[in-house]
């Protein structure tokens, strides 16, 4: 069998390096995409404009001009909040008291939806969540009576409150005060 020439060995290593590099870049991009998209959502220009760091913000109803998040639902009135439990718990309270569907969903900084509470699960009771990070020293702050402790897998994350609206203009007078009961408060 003929031994490989220097040129053949060179091209072998070049192609090997190319394949490994392409694979690593591919996997890194796949892993990073949700983190990058969530970062823009939580820290980008729109987030800064809404001023939603550890406090609730109330974007306008969805229309064709809503172009911040893909596939916005025109049937939901959204309220948002970016939380950061690095320096202590964040308390989330709300009392929409609506007969129709609403939900509060929490998303980790990698976009995982790790918690949802809807009107049925709430059973008419006001929402009171106490967000803490994994491994946080829970004795630093006394959890208020009636508050539900929710451990967030990442220190920073996103809260999205959905309120069903079949006809926003007709229901505005009821829905706006209801969703504005949402509060995110850094403790």
């Amino acid at each position: 069998m003929k031994a490989a020439t220097t040129t053949q060995r060179l091209w072998f290593y070049r192609l090997l390096t190319l394949s490994v590099t392409a694979l690593l870049v591919h996997l890194l991009a796949i892993w990073a995409a949700p983190h990058a998209i969530m970062w823009v959502l939580m820290q980008g220009p729109q987030a800064r404009a809404l001023n939603m760091q550890n406090q609730a913000a109330f974007p306008p109803a969805v229309t064709a001009n809503s172009r911040n998040v893909v596939m916005p639902s025109p049937d939901m009135l959204y309220s948002v909040c970016t939380y950061d439990v690095s320096e202590g718990p964040v308390r989330v309270t709300a009392n929409p008291a609506l007969p129709s569907y609403w939900s509060i969903a929490l998303y980790a900084s990698n976009s995982d939806n790790f918690y949802v509470l809807n009107d049925r699960k709430a059973r008419g009771k006001p929402v009171d969540l106490w967000l803490v990070s994994e491994g946080a020293n829970r004795t630093d702050h006394a959890v208020p009576s009636g508050s539900q402790v929710v451990v967030t897998p990442t220190r920073k994350g996103f809260l999205l409150m959905r309120v069903l609206t079949g006809n926003y203009e007709a229901e505005k007078a009821t829905l706006e005060p209801a969703r504005r009961t949402l509060a995110c408060t850094k403790i």
Partner: peptide, 21 residues
């Protein structure tokens, strides 16, 4: 919207249907 989603599903949902439940 499932925390058990694989790497590719998570990326695809983030790009095409961010904040899915």
């Amino acid at each position: 919207g499932n925390p058990d989603a694989d790497l590719y599903t998570r990326a695809a949902i983030a790009v095409n249907a961010l904040l899915a439940l």
